[in-house]
């Protein structure tokens, strides 16, 4: 098992998750995640060395459809519920050029 979770790890995971956490949240999250991960140590009692992981309950693979044109969602209706749209597209803030 890895080491107990640290504040720094929590901050790194928050960046990965694109989730701004304030200091109090980082503190609380560090404690709560540590508790939950500690609980997970229960499974150390099990011998899992020869167990095949189960990734999906009912095996179905490569479900494909015929490549034919069919009606899709109405673009104006989709964009109408977005926070910002322009020229038939989602509008977002600048992606590059704002690094400090």
């Amino acid at each position: 098992m890895p080491e107990p979770i640290s504040r720094e790890t929590v901050q790194k995971v928050a960046r990965l998750a694109r989730l701004d956490l304030n200091d109090a949240e980082v503190e609380r999250m560090t404690q709560q995640l540590a508790g939950m991960l500690e609980h997970f140590r229960d499974v150390d009692a099990l011998d899992l060395s020869n167990v095949e992981p189960l990734t999906q309950p009912i095996p179905l693979s490569n479900v494909l459809r015929d490549d034919v044109v069919a009606p899709s969602l109405d673009r104006d209706e989709v964009l109408g519920s977005a926070p910002a749209a322009q020229d038939g597209r989602f509008r977002v803030p600048p992606i590059v050029g704002f690094e400090e």
């Binding site: 960046r15 977005a82 600048p94 992606i95």
Partner: peptide
């Protein structure tokens, strides 16, 4: 992530807006 549905909190760039 503030792009396609519901809430957006405006920010100077895309990553800050997501977070």
């Amino acid at each position: 992530d503030g792009v396609r549905y519901g809430l957006r909190v405006d920010a100077k760039d895309l990553n800050s807006m997501y977070g």
